[in-house]
Computed example of a mutant assay.
Amino acid sequence: MNDIDAWVWWLVGAAALGIPLVVTAMPEFGMFAVGAVAGAIVAGLGFGAVAQVLVFIVVSVALIAVVRPIAARHSAQRPQLATGVDALRGKQAVVLERVDGSGGRIKLAGEIWSARALDSDRTYEVGQAVDVVEIEGATAIVI
């Protein structure tokens, strides 16, 4: 065991840290693995054990301090692309059959939808443009 260079041990450590990264999907293990690779580089350049451990700690902590908050921000963001009924909210439609509080028909995104007015006292006549505010089941709520 004494014949193996320190940089090899650092690479073995990096590989060992990569295993829980894959199994648990915790990115912190990947950051520690990168720190171990940095330690291997320092060992390969001929620095002592203290320098190797310090580089490992500094690189690992720096990655956790910088990358982790960025990753958390990205995971908290909603997707920019709205799909399904979410994509229909805010779209304009054309009234095909009179729409009031009890129902009617509109043409929305090239399809014919049942619709009803958000305000039950309002009515929209054929050919009038309306805005979709919500989708409830297969019914568009319009204003």
Rank of each mutant, 00 (worst) to 15 (best):
G39N: 04
F29D: 00
A33F: 01
A38D: 01
A82D: 12
A33G: 06
V67F: 07
P79S: 04
V37I: 13
M26C: 12
V53K: 15
S60T: 09
V66K: 06
A51M: 08
R73K: 11
R78M: 10
A72E: 11
I57M: 15
I70L: 10
G39V: 04
G48Q: 11
T83Q: 07
I57W: 12
A40R: 07
P79W: 00
A51Q: 08
V37A: 02
S60K: 03
V55L: 07
I57P: 07
E28M: 06
I57Q: 13
L54Y: 10
L21Y: 09
V66M: 11
V59K: 01
A33N: 02
G35T: 11
V53Y: 13
A33D: 01
G46C: 15
A76E: 07
F47P: 00
I70R: 08
I57C: 14
A76F: 04
A71M: 12
M26E: 11
M31I: 02
A87I: 14
A72Y: 08
M31N: 00
P27I: 12
A38R: 00
L54C: 13
A33Q: 01
V66D: 07
Q80P: 14
R78Q: 12
I57F: 14
A25D: 10
A38W: 00
V66C: 09
I41M: 13
Q52E: 06
A49S: 15
D86M: 09
L63V: 12
Q52V: 01
Q77S: 15
R68L: 10
V67H: 02
V42E: 04
H74Q: 11
V59E: 04
A72R: 11
P20R: 02
A71K: 08
S75P: 08
L21I: 10
V59T: 06
R68I: 08
G44L: 04
A76W: 03
V50P: 03
A33I: 02
V61G: 07
P20D: 03
Q52F: 02
F32S: 06
G44V: 03
G18W: 06
D86R: 10
L63H: 10
M31Q: 00
R73C: 05
G48I: 12
L81P: 01
A25R: 11
I19V: 15
L54V: 15
V67C: 09
F47E: 03
A36E: 00
F47N: 01
V61A: 13
F32C: 14
F56Q: 08
G18D: 04
V50R: 08
V67R: 02
V66W: 08
M26P: 04
A38C: 08
V23W: 10
E28S: 05
Q77V: 10
L21M: 14
A65K: 09
G39K: 02
G35S: 11
R73E: 05
A65V: 13
V37D: 00
A87T: 14
G46V: 15
V42K: 01
A72N: 11
A38K: 00
